[in-house]
Design a protein around this nucleic acid. Structure first.
Lengths: 139, 139
DNA sequence: ATCAAAAAAGCAACAATGTTGCAAATATTT
DNA sequence: AAATATTTGCAACATTGTTGCTTTTTTGAT
């Protein structure tokens, strides 16, 4: 695990620092998405707020994590599975927000559908967020 | 137009005030979505920030406008067409963000697709945001 | 039209969130 | 192990959003 973390950092030409290791660790041990606030809490108040902001920004730039759009204000981040395996960013998957536990998940196996747009519009990227009850909360 | 605005407010049991008229007017004269900041700017610095927040909140509660999820931080609001005609909230349409002009539009004619989820997940609501180039910017 | 009651606006103060510049600390490279 | 490059933490600030309370405006009844 620790080796994985260092690998991911090195593969992305990032120097290995305590905060990056810790924050990446949080993502790896967690199935859902994390907001900036979650990270500050779970990191055990060890890192400066600014460091967390900058680390997340760096990870997004490198494609290690991606942001998830939400209807409320909060920005959430999740590991980009494809990237972490291949070093290249594909986000064809959809996101799921559980209205019971509040967690956000990437459904890596569910592919974004085709959308037929009116004449004159062209598409770069499609983002799908499904709201409902997740597997854990249903069981 | 002015009569329309008063109608919408009255239909929703809201008292008719200058700020509500002005803000609703901004939405009606505008094809795209508005963020809180846009409204403060376009209103001509007449209203207190708090009033704008509270007005938007009220409009959302009444179903006059709805929020649009975005990957960046900003919350955007758009008129709910169905509601303004029927007094009842349906948001089956998708949203389009133009990466050229930055505007956000409701594509009222494009219906949210069916999404097949893995076993154990149930769906309440599906939000689709398409990023691309809009009709204006293509022409 | 006037007045009383209800609702909303504006103000002030605050809380949370995000940003920037810079000096000190840490990681990398040789 | 030292020099260089990078990152961290701090302080200060900017932006965004919230809350309580007083004044103003709107509404509804007379």
């Amino acid at each position: 695990m620790q080796a994985d973390i260092r690998n991911i950092l090195k593969r992305n030409q990032l120097s290995v620092t305590a905060s990056r290791e810790k924050i990446l660790h949080l993502f790896l041990e967690q199935s859902g998405a994390l907001a900036h606030g979650d990270i500050e809490k779970r990191a055990g108040e060890k890192f400066d707020r600014v460091t967390v902001y900058r680390t997340l920004q760096t990870f997004v730039e490198k494609g290690i994590i991606h942001t998830i759009p939400t209807a409320d204000n909060s920005v959430r981040y999740a590991l980009c599975k494809d990237n972490c395996e291949a070093g290249h960013h594909h986000d064809q998957h959809i996101h799921f927000v559980c209205s019971h536990c509040g967690q956000t998940f990437c459904l890596d196996d569910v592919v974004t559908p085709e959308i037929k747009l009116p004449r004159g519009y062209s598409t770069n990227h499609i983002e799908v967020v499904v709201n409902g009850i997740c597997r854990e909360c249903t069981a």
